[in-house]
């Protein structure tokens, strides 16, 4: 019978699964052109953030807008540059599950240390 290679990462380097995986998603991969478009958006958003910083609004509004713009940049990088939008759902689950736990813990910690709850 044919050799039965051990199926660890070294074997998978050569294994067909990796190619399969890419063929499956190849047509869905964004093109370099799309990457450059994303980069332009990222730069424009950063510029807007910069301008808002020198604008004149109350700090709660400013905080809200900056948080939303940061989240937008975050989602663009994760979705396109890290391919999560096109990739297997398990990768998203692996990343976003702890991420959501972390955000919740951070919010809870900040509430616990704020004067509101003491």
């Amino acid at each position: 019978m044919a050799p039965t290679p051990w199926r660890g990462w070294g074997a998978s380097r050569m294994a067909a699964q990796h190619d399969l995986h890419h063929e499956e998603h190849a047509e869905k991969h964004p093109s370099p052109r799309r990457y450059i478009q994303i980069a332009v958006v990222l730069c424009v958003v950063t510029l807007i953030e910069f301008l808002i910083f020198y604008g004149n609004m109350d700090s709660a509004t400013m905080t809200g807008i900056i948080l939303m713009l940061s989240a937008l940049k975050f989602i663009l990088v994760v979705g396109y540059y890290m391919h999560l939008k096109f990739d297997n759902w398990r990768f998203s689950a692996f990343f976003f599950f702890p991420f959501i736990i972390m955000i919740s813990i951070m919010v809870a910690l900040m509430a616990l240390f704020s004067n509101l709850t003491r």
Partner: peptide, 14 residues
């Protein structure tokens, strides 16, 4: 290959 068809090392990185 693997149960999910995903690469071990890529899953590890995520």
């Amino acid at each position: 290959a693997t149960s999910t068809g995903l690469n071990n090392r890529k899953l590890l990185m995520w």
